[in-house]
């Protein structure tokens, strides 16, 4: 049930993107997301989609896995498509029943928005597919480093993020164990109305929260025992270095940016 989520997972590999510096990937993805929103016409969006596809190939991640990451957002996709389809007015009317009108502009907006979201999800999941959680938080930590001048403890923030990510699978396992135990005592999660179903969650969440606290204490003790004091002065075993391939990521983004600017100028805007 909860084991089939591929979004946000790391997939081990040895591809171009796997070897990239997490910082350049983070900046690249951020840049890319901005670009997706800068697209005004179908032509520029097509260019972005093509670049996304190339990136998927470069990442060496199975196309099937990438598509799987779209599964959780499927409902959002359908919802936005329908809303845009019916509530955008303007342009030629293609189809109309009982006051509901589907206009040309509506269809265009719906397709455009859906493509945008797909691009967004695919690119951001590529980041997590090719970067281990540790690398990711290390990258974020380094990128946020300037904030230390504002007396924000970036090191601790990064450590918190690493720990949060680390405990996701553990908690999933824990939930499964508690569900099994309560089911064995006759807990019923499938029948009944909303109220009784919500009540049925109490025997799961109370033990879960308690054991999370217990884990937090244990972890804190274990960290203290190994002399963790937090702070920004911690050094790293693996130093991050910007290499040629990282420069390539920036060039890639620059090329895409100029492509989009040109196409936006040449063609009429959809939205």
């Amino acid at each position: 049930m909860i084991n089939n989520i591929t979004f946000g997972q790391y997939i081990p590999g040895n591809s171009f993107f796997h070897k990239c510096d997490p910082r350049s990937k983070l900046i690249g993805v951020f840049w890319y997301v901005v670009l997706i929103f800068l697209c005004k016409s179908f032509f520029s969006l097509a260019l972005v989609s093509a670049f996304t596809l190339i990136s998927v190939i470069f990442s060496g991640v199975n196309l099937k896995t990438v598509l799987k990451s779209l599964k959780p957002v499927l409902i959002i996709l359908i919802f936005t498509a329908i809303v845009n389809l019916f509530y955008t007015s303007g342009g030629e009317i293609i189809f109309a029943i009982r006051g509901f009108k589907i206009t040309e502009k509506g269809v265009n907006t719906a397709v455009f928005t859906v493509l945008r979201i797909i691009n967004l999800v695919v690119v951001s999941s590529l980041l997590t597919y090719t970067t281990t959680p540790t690398m990711l938080t290390d990258g974020i930590e380094r990128l946020l480093h300037p904030l230390t001048y504002l007396h924000i403890n970036v090191g601790s923030l990064a450590m918190m993020m690493t720990l949060a990510l680390r405990f996701i699978p553990t908690l999933i396992e824990e939930i499964q164990r508690i569900i099994n135990a309560q089911k064995s005592r006759g807990a019923d999660f499938e029948n009944g109305g909303i109220v009784s179903r919500a009540k049925a969650l109490v025997p799961i969440f109370v033990p879960l929260i308690i054991s999370s606290f217990r884990r937090a204490y244990e972890l804190a003790f274990a960290m203290t025992a190994r002399c963790y004091t937090g702070g920004n002065e911690r050094t790293r075993m693996k130093q991050m270095k910007i290499k040629v391939r990282d420069i390539f990521v920036f060039v890639y983004c620059v090329v895409l940016t100029s492509g989009i600017i040109v196409l936006n100028r040449l063609f009429e805007a959809v939205l």
């Binding site: 508690i178 099994n180 135990a181 309560q182 064995s184 005592r185 019923d188 033990p207 054991s211």
Partner: peptide, 29 residues
């Protein structure tokens, strides 16, 4: 569903499944 009452399973470290306010209520679950 009913077989769960014929075959009672107590998993490893079952103390982590306690959730009620009192011991009585928990055993009564």
């Amino acid at each position: 569903y009913n077989v769960k009452f014929k075959v009672g399973i107590c998993f490893q470290y079952p103390e982590y499944q306690l959730f009620e306010e009192t011991v009585f209520k928990d055993i009564a679950f």
